[in-house]
Design a binder for these strands. Structure first.
Length: 587
DNA sequence: TAAAGAGGCGCG
DNA sequence: AAAGCGCGCCTCTTTA
């Protein structure tokens, strides 16, 4: 700890705009004292940031990483750490650990536009993109990005954390969330190395040659469609319109309620197999076909848009490019540049392990030690087969009450009472209309007005059976949501800590010679190992081949570090499936 | 004619 | 394949 006689190092550097739209910065010392604002000449922001980053690497405090950081990266400037005011605001104003939430809630203009729309404080017709448009005239720009507002909000957030009952955990969460925002921007900047030729080959092999126009269907789809129509005895049957398809199926004597594949599987009819095949092909064509390739892959890089904190549980969402839905069929198209490799890792059974750690369930932790957790459940005699173990765990975390999954939950409850109590308590809180909170302090939203109305209606004297059923049903639904929230949300926190740790360690690698660079990764990443993909519990690092083993070690050690950061000495292993190679496809 | 909703399916 | 959480995106249909 620095003594009073030592000058406080400028821990934070708050960035915002002056009223006339020019960037300005103010240092804030460890004690919270802001220094005098320094204005930054037009067009010199990147140089300013680079200089300060080299001098003392402050934690940059800014309104929105997504707003500021892409431009810095494009200018070749990386930052080590930041505090994203927007993301932090969302966490703090909802967190049950924060006692003094009122100042944050009162600063309603800091909320996301979507959240404002929910409370009808903003007309639904408000053009949302305008709020994020840097190119607008300064006068019309949102006032949230002024330096004065940033300093005020930063002060509110520090006070909120200091007053909370879990300052250490919340600080860790805000740091991890902000690191995630940096990483999301860096992932888009670096891109995922994509083998367009291989993707095209897969499309041709699966669908047939690319039709001359998008209006035409590929040959294999036409062939499947012909088989379906033949089998249905209906040469004009429409396969692309669910209502029409449903009528055609019924007319052919197939008694289905919907056209979804899980229901079609139940029926024996010569039309079923080609119809399911047609649906698969159609999905590939529309979601990740040639149009997707043309739109999303440039210069050998797929650059999706990630949205950190975009999911209510804290998981990332994506907005454009469908990064979180890449079909496994296309994994072969992920391919490192020549002389580089992809280091791919995914966490085995992340959510059950997180549940074991947060509940302190020693038996469940033991089941996951040194091996596959599901195999551990079998070895421990809780269930008979690995498949049963998997379904039982999913049922426990999602709140299954029926089916094979629900049937196995009681066995889990006997074997792992502590873990099950944690999720059962979370479900009970949700059913009562309460909120639940993740390990680091992200709280679930309270029930909306509609939910409260339904519950209230059922407890009125004249409530009908229908009212009561509706209330019970929506209570149970909410219980399943809060049950899953604590596990999914804490797993997302673990994953952020893992990512942040990997990112930090990757900066230690020396750049490879210019002759070996991967220019499509952008100036910042062309010569160093960098994160290239993230998907909830899975990362891919694009690395010069000679660093592959060291990078793999970094990824592995980061998992252990993340476990310690969150859970201290909890005896839970976070095991990875690691692979290193030119392609990311699993063996 | 554009927006909103529903159905369906990809991912974890 | 399993019914049970969280998403995004595409298509077709209904609604304003």
């Amino acid at each position: 700890m620095p003594t009073e006689t030592q000058p406080s190092p400028p821990h934070w550097c708050v960035l915002g705009r002056t009223p006339d739209g020019v960037f300005a910065a103010a240092h804030v010392s460890a004690s919270g004292e802001p220094g005098a604002p320094v204005s930054i000449e037009e067009g010199t922001l990147a140089a300013f940031v680079a200089q300060h980053e080299a001098d003392h690497s402050p934690r940059w405090v800014w309104w929105s990483t997504a707003q500021v950081y892409p431009e810095l990266l494009a200018a070749g400037v990386r930052v080590a750490r930041c505090h994203d005011l927007m993301l932090s605001h969302q966490i703090l104003r909802n967190s049950e650990h924060v006692r003094g939430r009122q100042p944050l809630i009162a600063a309603a203009h800091w909320a996301e536009p979507a959240a404002l729309a929910d409370t009808h404080e903003v007309p639904a017709s408000l053009p949302e993109p305008a709020l994020f448009d840097l190119d607008r005239a300064p006068a019309a720009r949102d006032h949230r990005d002024t330096l004065a507002e940033a300093l005020a909000e930063f002060g509110r957030q520090r006070a909120a954390v200091d007053s909370s009952s879990a300052a250490g955990r919340l600080s860790l969460l805000l740091a991890a969330e902000s690191a995630g925002a940096l990483i999301a921007a860096e992932l888009s900047a670096a891109g995922l190395p994509w083998d367009t030729a291989e993707h095209n080959r897969i499309l041709i092999e699966t669908l047939g040659p690319r039709p001359a126009s998008a209006a035409e269907k590929p040959a294999r789809m036409l062939a499947m469609a012909a088989q379906v129509r033949e089998a249905l005895g209906d040469p004009l049957a429409s396969l692309d319109s669910p209502p029409k398809l449903l009528r055609a199926l019924r007319a052919a004597g197939i008694a289905v309620e919907s056209t979804s594949q899980w229901e079609l599987y139940e029926h024996e009819h010569p039309a079923i197999a080609p119809l399911l095949a047609y649906k698969k092909l159609s999905r590939l064509l529309t979601a990740n076909g040639w149009a997707w390739l043309d739109e999303w892959v440039r210069d050998g890089r797929y650059r999706p848009v990630y949205v950190p904190g975009g999911v209510v549980t804290g998981r990332w969402a994506s907005n454009g490019g469908g990064a979180l839905q890449l079909p496994r069929l296309l994994r072969r198209a992920l391919r490192a540049d020549p002389g580089w490799v992809l280091v791919s890792a995914d966490v085995s059974q992340l959510e059950p392990r997180v549940l074991a750690a947060m509940s302190g369930d020693r038996a469940m932790a033991a089941a996951g030690r040194g091996s596959d957790l599901y195999a551990g459940l079998v070895a421990g005699g809780v269930v008979d087969t690995r498949e049963e173990a998997k379904f039982a765990m999913l049922g426990a975390m999602y709140g299954a009450t029926s089916g094979d999954s629900g049937r196995l939950v009681p066995q889990l409850r006997r074997g792992f009472p502590a873990a099950m109590r944690l999720v059962d308590d979370a479900a009970a809180a949700g059913e009562r209309g309460g909120t639940v909170t993740t390990w680091l302090g992200r709280s679930s939203p309270p029930p909306d007005a509609e939910w409260n109305n339904v519950q209230a209606a059922a407890s009125l004297p004249g409530a009908s059976r229908r009212d009561e059923d509706a209330a019970r049903r929506s209570a149970r639904e909410r219980g399943r949501f809060t049950r899953n929230f604590v596990v999914q949300g804490t797993a997302a926190e673990w994953a952020l800590a893992w990512l942040a740790e990997i990112r930090g360690k990757l900066t230690d690698f020396a750049p490879v010679p210019a002759a070996r660079e991967a220019p499509a990764s952008g100036t910042v990443f062309a010569r160093v190992p960098h994160l290239a993909f993230f998907l909830h519990d899975e990362v891919i690092v694009h690395s010069p081949a000679e660093h592959a083993d060291a990078v793999a070690l970094v990824v592995e050690e980061a998992a252990a570090t993340a476990g310690r950061r969150l859970f201290g000495g909890a005896p839970v292993d976070f095991r990875l499936e690691l692979s290193v190679g030119e392609r990311a496809e699993k063996p």
